[in-house]
């Protein structure tokens, strides 16, 4: 499992709708904002890269020191962004694909307004479980 990993789902309007620190290290107080900064800045790269490929998984697109940003863009242009320090490309890809399925299930909920914050605790536990499994 990765020592540091921060997973964020960004809606098509660039609003984070789900955030989770899934790393195994104890959470540092200032880490959260650094992670947000890195992921937010990486959106600039995603913006360019997303239209150059038909694949949803964009692999590692940005890095900051030893932290790497991997991104998965859904058809609705919702972006799953993972900040990690491990080099497990296959695991990350599977993680993204499974999270995508979970996300679709969330979307199918008629009470969920697309683009709003995901507050489902079930989703949260599932994502953390997947992180433990794949990262």
């Amino acid at each position: 499992m990765a020592t540091t990993a921060c997973f964020i789902i960004v809606s098509r309007n660039d609003i984070p709708i789900y955030e989770a620190e899934v790393g195994s290290t104890a959470k540092r107080e200032d880490a959260a904002q650094l992670h947000q900064f890195i992921l937010h800045a990486a959106l600039d790269i995603v913006q360019d890269l997303a239209w150059t490929t038909s694949a949803m998984f964009l692999k590692a697109i940005d890095r900051f020191n030893d932290l790497v940003v991997s991104v998965y863009v859904t058809a609705g242009h919702t972006r799953f962004m993972l900040l990690h320090d491990s080099r497990n490309d296959d695991g990350i890809k599977s993680f993204f694909q499974e999270v995508h399925e979970l996300y679709i299930k969330i979307l199918l909920n008629p009470l969920y307004l697309p683009g709003s914050r995901i507050t489902s605790s079930h989703f949260d536990t599932k994502v953390r479980g997947l992180a433990r499994k794949y990262l």
């Binding site: 900064f37 890195i38 937010h40 800045a41 990486a42 959106l43 600039d44 790269i45």
Partner: peptide, 18 residues
């Protein structure tokens, strides 16, 4: 430099300023 790039990468601009 990020600001000057085409198209401007504003988020990177902000991040590096910080």
């Amino acid at each position: 430099c990020y600001l000057l790039s085409k198209p401007p990468m504003l988020r990177k601009f902000g991040f590096h300023l910080v």
